[in-house]
Nucleic acid binder design. Structure first.
Lengths: 342, 342
DNA sequence: TTGTAAGCGTTATCAA
DNA sequence: TTGATAACGCTTACAA
């Protein structure tokens, strides 16, 4: 009320209410042991004074902050945006709040981020690791930090994770291309040190094998997952007269990469899908609106968010649930970037 | 080291080091009053034990959490993604960390979010309000919460904000369309209660007036800022035989709205820019890759993030800086969605 | 039903 | 140069 008011605490409320501050504390927590009248009166006074609890103090005492950390390996990737939205949504509906940090694909930053979460006392984290084999995993385990891994999953017993089957994604995509008559498929995978890159290649190879198509290693490329680097790569390849251009389709490990392919084709004067068919992976927000709309493998990004929150909170609140691992399946979304040939 | 270790505190370090815990505390904070040797030794022990400070305790005592709250009115809007990235980046480079919450365009949720930030003791907030006239602003002011307003700015003395001139945006866009021969421009603005919607209309009208074009109120529409609702609206309008379709250009308050226009045109069998020219506003990530690439007014989303962090931290750390208000200018980005007519 | 008091893990003041 | 101690604002046994 007064304009020079200091932050109000339970002690001040206690003074006004004429009870001890511990009674106020109980009252504000709606403790049934406190007389209903006292409770009401204290709550009323608290409201009038504009009281809000100091959660730092409470957390210090209770050893629970009701906040969880979200550590992403690359916030720049639009892939994560939908997941973040869902995480925020479900977290808040469960009474939690989110600290969001970016590791910038850097192991040291990731390490720093994990320590920060520990220091700030989060109840748990949801993390997409920079690498599935980093030492940073040890910090998590040694400190018994409750965590759900998403996107990149370390190969460790008994961890809790939500995964999307990358191998299946490229398998589906490749079969789809084959069904549409494509035999010369250029595979644009990600950085070679990324587990996901290799899995994507495996699924692709598996589909080729299944259909009796010879695997041509020169048609499998590892490159950064970004529009610009993909576009540049493709243009360079073309200018160097690579035979890669004899392919009829391009399968990309990410819609971002597919967008890079779009850019390159535009630059080179080819059109999609007339000259080259393109299939992406992720189905990010914008893919449906590209010219032409991108045929892609949908990754259930929102479900990843929702489920990871559930797994994590169940862990934290010791809610009965044997589930600790979720492998989600991607699915084909047919749009306009693939042409049937024969 | 031991597998059943409890969280290590300065007391345990003190015991091992054979000094008092307060000496350890000073040592770990690199206090020069502590003997250099003691300092080194304590730090070494801390490292060996895998110590990390309990920031809850420190914050409670120091009254600073080194975390700032980011409260967005609609996390679902891709517009915010780049801003979030920048905020995270600059915050972390200044040693701060971010709590991110979504108000879902709901005043009660916004209120709850602000209280949460207060309770969690954030050092300040960056907020895009649900409404520029909400009572929630009072909570912020009464509690002297350091804040930077972005995107929607309340009309109040002496606040700190980063703004993008919406009026200028639509002015630029309209002039550009006029320069390209368009006189019948359909303006797709946002919800009528949004200040931004009105400013967008004002800038548009100003440009029309400047060029002696009569303002036709029936060509100004208020509608939700979303792809689907825009698309639906336009299709309905067309089917109802509205004369709106006699326009030659559509100016949209957001790229999202422009995307809705794209969808509608596709559905209706019109093509852009041949049949209708379209101009957007925001220049979100995907706009450059639409078919055709969207001509739009670029909003400096990243700069909003960067500057808001600077203004906020300067406030918090009492760094000399008279700046409290920043009005950023949008600029035209010509791409392929506008046709020159005569 | 209410109150006392200890404790959460730090920081910071003052004394030794 | 180091140590004792109070304090930050709350929760929670336990006592009254």
């Amino acid at each position: 009320m007064s304009s020079i008011k200091k932050k109000v605490t339970i002690k001040q409320i206690a003074e006004i209410a004429g009870v001890s501050f511990s009674t106020v504390a109980k009252a504000l927590n709606d403790n049934k042991l406190v007389n209903i009248e006292t409770r009401k009166r204290n709550i009323k006074i608290a409201e009038e004074l504009g009281y809000y609890p100091n959660l730092l103090a409470a957390s210090l005492r209770k050893k629970s902050t009701k906040t969880i950390g979200v550590i992403l390996n690359d916030l720049t990737n639009p892939y994560y945006y939908e997941t973040i939205q869902e995480i925020e949504y479900f977290l808040s509906s469960r009474g939690y709040t989110m600290i969001l940090v970016d590791s910038n694909l850097n192991l040291d930053t990731e390490n720093k981020n994990i320590i920060t979460m520990l220091s700030k006392g989060v109840d748990g984290i949801i993390i997409s690791l920079v690498s599935s084999e980093s030492k940073n995993i040890n910090i998590i385990i040694e400190n018994k930090l409750k965590t759900v891994f998403i996107d990149v999953i370390p190969d460790i017993e008994n961890i809790c994770y939500v995964y999307v089957k990358h191998k299946l994604a490229s398998f589906i995509a490749t079969e789809y291309l084959i069904d549409n008559g494509h035999k010369n498929i250029l595979l644009l995978s990600g950085p070679i040190q990324l587990t996901a890159s290799n899995e994507f290649i495996k699924g692709h190879s598996k589909a080729l094998r299944k259909h009796g198509i010879k695997i041509n290693k020169s048609l499998i490329l590892n490159n950064d997952i970004s529009i610009d680097s993909t576009s540049k790569k493709l243009i360079d390849l073309y200018k160097d007269g690579s035979k890669i251009i004899r392919c009829t389709a391009i399968l990309c490990i990410s819609d971002l990469v597919a967008m890079g392919a779009y850019e390159a084709m535009k630059e080179l004067g080819f059109s999609i899908p007339e000259d080259y068919s393109v299939v992406g992976y992720d189905n990010i927000f914008s893919s449906a609106y590209l010219g032409p709309p991108l045929t892609t493998i949908h990754s259930p990004k929102k479900r990843v968010g929702k489920i990871s929150v559930n797994l994590l909170i169940n862990q934290i609140e010791n809610i009965e649930s044997s589930e600790r691992k979720k492998d989600l399946e991607p699915r084909l979304v047919e749009r306009g970037s693939v042409r049937k040939i024969n």
